[in-house]
Amino acid sequence: MTDTPSPLEIHDLTVSYQRKPVLYGIDLVVGEGSLVGVIGPNGAGKSTLIKSIMGMIPHNGGWVKIFGKPPGKSCSRVGYVPQRESVDWDFPVSVLDVVLMGRYNHAGWFRRVGKKDRRIACECLEKVNMLPFADRQIGKLSGGQQQRVFLARALAQESDLYLMDEPFAGVDAVTEKAIIEVLRELKSQGKSLVVVHHDLSTAREYFDQLVLLNMRLIAVGKVEDTFTRDLLQKTYGGRLTIFTEVADQSAGIREYDKERRSVSSME
């Protein structure tokens, strides 16, 4: 055991909007170099969890520590990819401007953006295949391209902990593969990533740890232990019926389970 504080530690976190609790008693520790998926139905509080980790929403119980410090103190070590809907796409900035924003902390707030920062910003755009669009206004991109720009900005921040709210939303299969490659590369560099994800069919393949969330923490741990039919059912409540197929396939439901179901459907 090293005594370096873990990148993200949450204890008994409770968050509510106008007295209506949205998250209850969340406990979570994210270790160095882990790629964690957060899964749960719409309205489960995934975005709320990410935002309260960032300190954007006040919480009314428990605490969050990022590298052993409260969020306000060490936020500069956090990179954040927002959910698409929360961005003002008409804003007069170009793709490169957005990525350069991620460099402001490194470049210094009052100095000119140097060649080095510009080069890093371009490299990050290159990684997500968006360099040809560097001069476009951000509203004039497709949804998937916009998503990639924000990923590039997070990369440019060179953070140690990344929080991403649905980076795969509206992204085509090829891009999704490219993004997951980037995420894995970050992980191999010892960075920690917490990624909100919606697609159960790929969750198992992409992440090595999962957080199952539905207002409460349903389960957290290695994919093998958490991606089970029971836990997923519990997470999605009764609503998982449409997911069952997917869940079964990828959870690799044991053969006798299938047989049992086919028997019951014949009855």
């Binding site: 960032m54 954007m56 500069s76 954040y80 927002p82 401007d97 924003m101 991620g102 402001y104």
Partner: peptide
């Protein structure tokens, strides 16, 4: 610019 465009990023920075 940053705080107008993206409050969350502004806070992270």
């Amino acid at each position: 610019l940053v705080s107008s465009f993206d409050l969350t990023l502004a806070k992270t920075l």
